[in-house]
């Protein structure tokens, strides 16, 4: 009886191995596939020196669950050079070299992101490395893991304790910004009144 069991076991294993080795066969018990939030981006972006649209594996868009706003991700293994414009938020975890113009949208540089670029956006948040001039209509944030060398111009700038920054910071005042929103203007006034007090 014991021997019978010992004999059966290798046979089952061999059968399972054979299933795996056969091309085109589906695993008898496939794991349920996770719903993928990331879908291919519309081919609006082009790599430097190429007229080909960027591969869907380089830039991916997802629907942000909270706001429903479209968001693009440059993955951590990606290196991209050139000019980037668009109408959606952007998160960079890879390397980018060039210019970014997302006037009404947010740019987030993740902890592993490395960016050498002049950025024009509504809001910029930096947790990785950034070198360049940044112009944000609303706010620039530098997280504690952030390392920024450059000139910042925005309605508000927030730097976390522990972040590295070298460069200049200039706050846009309501009279200087023709496109300032009412909330941003209130923020500016509040800042000035703190000083007066």
């Amino acid at each position: 009886m014991w021997r019978d069991k010992e004999k059966k076991a290798p046979t089952q294993k061999a059968t399972s191995k054979a299933w795996e080795d056969l091309p085109g066969l589906i695993d008898p018990a496939p794991a349920p596939e996770e719903p993928r939030p990331i879908t291919p981006v519309t081919p609006t972006y082009f790599t430097e020196g190429s007229e080909k649209p960027m591969s869907e594996t380089i830039l991916k868009t997802a629907n942000s669950s909270s706001s429903g706003q479209r968001q693009t991700l440059l993955g951590s293994s990606m290196v991209l050079k050139g000019e980037l414009t668009g109408d959606e938020d952007l998160t960079i975890e890879g390397q980018f070299d060039g210019t970014i113009n997302l006037k009404d949208y947010c740019v987030t540089i993740g902890q592993h992101g490395q960016v050498k670029a002049d950025i024009n956006a509504r809001q910029v948040s930096v947790g990785g490395k950034l070198s360049g001039k940044v112009n944000a209509r609303d706010k620039i944030e530098i997280r504690k893991t952030g390392n920024v060398v450059g000139d910042l111009v925005a309605m508000g700038v927030a730097i976390e304790e522990g972040a590295y920054f070298k460069g200049s910071i200039e706050i846009l005042r309501e009279e200087e910004s023709s496109t300032s929103s009412s909330s941003a203007a209130t923020h500016s006034r509040a800042a000035v009144s703190t000083w007066s007090a």
Binding site: V157, A158, E161, Y164, F165, K166, S168, I169, A191, W195
Partner: peptide
């Protein structure tokens, strides 16, 4: 070294701030 508190004070004074540690 960059200090959020110092920046707040200087930016409230409407200064353009250069920072270099």
């Amino acid at each position: 070294p960059v200090s959020p508190a110092t920046l707040q004070v200087l930016l409230n004074r409407r200064a353009k701030v250069y920072v270099a540690d």
